[in-house]
Each structure stands twice: as C-alpha cells, then as structure tokens.
Nucleic acid binder design. Sequence first.
RNA 1: GGCGCGGUAGCCAAGUGGUAAGGCCAAGGUCUGCAAAACCUUUAUUCGUCGGUUCGAUUCCGACCCGCGCCUCCA
Length: 466
Amino acid sequence: MAVQFYNTLSQQAEEFSPARDNTVRMYTCGPTVYDFAHIGNFRTFTFVDLLRKWLRASGFHLDHVMNITDVDDKIIRNAAAHRKTLEEYTAIYTRAFLEDCDKLRLERPEHLVPATSHINDMVEAIERLGAADHTYKSDGSVYFRISSFAGYGKLSHNDFSGNIAGARVDVDSYDKADARDFALWKAPKEGERFWDTPIGPGRPGWHIECSVMAIKYLGETLDIHAGGVDLIFPHHENEIAQSESLTGKPFARFWLHAEFLLVEGQKMSKSLGNYFTLRDVLDRGYKPETVRYLLASVPYRKSLNFTFDGLKSAETAIERLRNFKLRLESDRFPEGATEAVTRRTAQACRAFTDGMNADLNTAEALGAIFEYIRDANSAMDSGGFGAGDVPGALELLALFDRVFAVIEPTAATGQVSDEEVEARIAERTAAKKARDFARADDVRKQLLDQGIILEDTKAGVRWKRK
RNA sequence: GGCGCGGUAGCCAAGUGGUAAGGCCAAGGUCUGCAAAACCUUUAUUCGUCGGUUCGAUUCCGACCCGCGCCUCCA
C-alpha cells in the first residue's frame, strides 16, 4: 500500500506521489515570531515533522519551504512596546523558535524563509495581479478582489456565490469593495515600519508572503501544502486565490491540515491559565521527547487533548520502548534466528508501515510496535528469541524512531561518566558475591541518586540513565 | 445560521458489515537475595441518543443531543 493522505480539497483520502521526479515539493506555514510558540503551535509543527520523516522513510526526497512571518500587526505593536526595532524583536523570537524546534527534534526545512527578505518579490507579484485586474487600491492599500477569482471557496467548501460584491457588510474600518476582499499591501499607519516601493509605501499583507515564497522556491504547483485547520479559511483560501490568479495553475495538489490542541479538555487561553509554551512545560521537568511523543501519538486530524496525565503516560510508554532496546542490546540470546520471530518482525514492520501510510495513523503504527514488543519480550522469556533475531528487531525500532524520534534520551548536563558507573557496578558485584547485600543495595541507591538505574539480569548487570 | 472535525473502558486511543488493537493507570500472579525489567491473568455483552436498512451495525442511512474549530490576518 502506498502512502495516502486526506486532502482537504477533495475531502477524501488520496494516494500520494510527487508530480515530478522523486521529490516532494511542500510548503508549510511557519510561525509569526511575536512571542514564544505554544504547544498548540508545536502540535502542528510536530505533525509537519512526522510528515517529512515519513515521506523520507517512504523513499522520497524533500524540498520543503517554511516561512517565518516577521512583519505583522502584533509584531509591530509588541516591538514598539519593547522599544525595539522590528528586526531586533523578531530575531529574539526566531531564535527561540528554532531552539524549541531543536529540542523537539523537528528537522529544519530545506528553506526557512523570512517574509521581510522577500518584499520585492511580493511587490512584483502584487503588480502582476494588478495588471491582470485582480486588485484595487484604497487609501494607499492594495486589496485583492475576490469576485475576480471564480474558484474562491473551493478549499473551505464555502459557497460565496450569494455574496454580491459591493453588498454592505460591516466593513467600518476598511474601505473594501467586498467584505471578503483582503489586503495584499497595507499602507503604513503613523510611526509604523514601512517599505518604499513602486506600489507605494507600506508593508505586505499576511497572505501574499506564502504564495510568493512557495512559487519562488518550489514552482507554480506544490505537491503538498500543510498547516493548522484554522488556516483553511481565510489564509489558505486567499493563498489559492492569489497564486492561481498569478499562474493559472492549481496552487497545491494536496492540502493537509492538523486539528486543534486542547488543554485539559478546554481551549488553551491565557485567561483560563492553561496556556503553555514549550518552555513552560519543560520547566515543569518534562523531557522534550516526552512532549514530542504525546504530540505525535494522536493522529493529526483528531483534536489532541494535552494533559499532564497524558505526559506522564507518554513518559512511561517511552520507557517501555527504551527498555526493550536495552534488552536487545544487553541480553544473551541463543545462537541463530527463529523462523517464528523472523516472520513476526516482518509482520510488525508491515503493520507499522500500513499505519503510517494510512494518512499518518500514528496510533495504529504505535499499536503495531507495542504489540511486537510484547510478543518479542515473551519470546525472549521463553528462550524462543535468538541472537540472529536481534538485528531485525533493532531495524524495526530504527524504522520507528526515524519517524517518532523519541528513543534516544536528551542528554542531561553534568552526569556521571560511564567509567565511573562501571567501577561502582564492579564494586557492587563484589559485595553481592560476598553476600553483603546491604553494601550492594547501598551502592545501587547511591547510583540511583545520580540518575543511574541498575538491573540484575541473567546476563549480568545492565544499567541505564533515568 | 453556513462550513468542517469529533463523541469507543478510569484516562489517551485504533478499528471493521459478523461480533471491540495498543498505551497509561489499577488488582492478582510468575520470576528475583531485594529491587528493576519482563511475562501471565483480570478490567467495554459494549462503541453519544433514538429510529431505519440488514440474517447481523460500533461500523451504512436518517433525525437528534453534546464537545471543538473556522466564518475580519489564530497552528
């Protein structure tokens, strides 16, 4: 089975392959850098990362663009409030965003592009739209005329045919011909940062940056365009209107949208006190990979209820994965491989792949892995798991972790060295041999206080970091 | 009101026209100097409600109830 994605445009699952050669050209909406990103943002960015990783695991190459929105109303307002220039202000939050991404093991897109580096491209596009009569000017701003684009509404499945241009809806502060028309270019208000351009002084509207940068780096038709569901309307609808008016070609073949994240069953909001940035969560002592696991474990098209119980559950689940890997690496197994295990490993690999191929059904994929782990552990306990079965099992875990990326622990700072741990273990083993269990337990307790867990097995002592 | 997503065990969650994956939690057991890890057993006669289609529906259809999102730049 090939990989399938649910396409918002067609409202059904479709088999995916890139239009040209073996490279997936995709564009995903990035952050607006006016503050630290919150875990809801990272739900979407984690989805995008899973998408990247699974596409690559499926044998495709990637050419992926993500924008950094570094000019908008909130940025201008916040920068002014902090008495910083736009550039100073956005640099802080861009850096913070990238640090957070690194912690969550989110890969960098091939192109990470700030809007303000593409002002000329945007102005040029707006001029071309104007030449094709898709725009009009009003009070120094340039608007896109929605009535000039026949397909408006096809992504959000809204029917705008009843909206007659010029019908007066509440448009008080804007002088627009139609309430749905949107700004391509905004005239500067008093004291605002602006660019002097052939279409007048001002700054770009939000939607135009995505169209322009996507087309510039990836061509006129993208294979995939992705983002959060809240962007379907109006953002992505507007992108389609602009892009297709410019090129006359479909803007994107597949539109993928990640559902919302709730916190403790409620919408995240500052007033409810359930608003968390990634930093807030990590400050409570959770590991980044735990957050990643939780965000990845619920399929992206289902809303995700983020809870601290859920984080604890994720922590334990990761432990189980790590323990299994440790056992594969440290136990002694009988010579050779067994046919039953070989078959079981191949089956698990297929089940995992089928799950991911089914529109990134991570819950199903995880189920396949955990079922396998139980069966493999069981086989080990009964001596039915051979040394020759180890590589296949490790490969399966590697496949899993190429996508989920949660098994390797985040290194803690100032931890005890491996050598020191080994020395203490030797000390304890000697004490055990002398049946001085009090002394042996003492060593184990001391190591535990330093974050080292010892486990006695038939093959000897094995240890891991907490 | 329009458009969209969802309601499955204590929590998270997969899934199919034929009788409910997986993870966490809980209880009991096996193993163990102890501990840990691991395994085994138990935990939804039931899948929001009410109708309909069917030999049979959680899965299809209809109505309704509830939650969430978008509908003037929020992932």
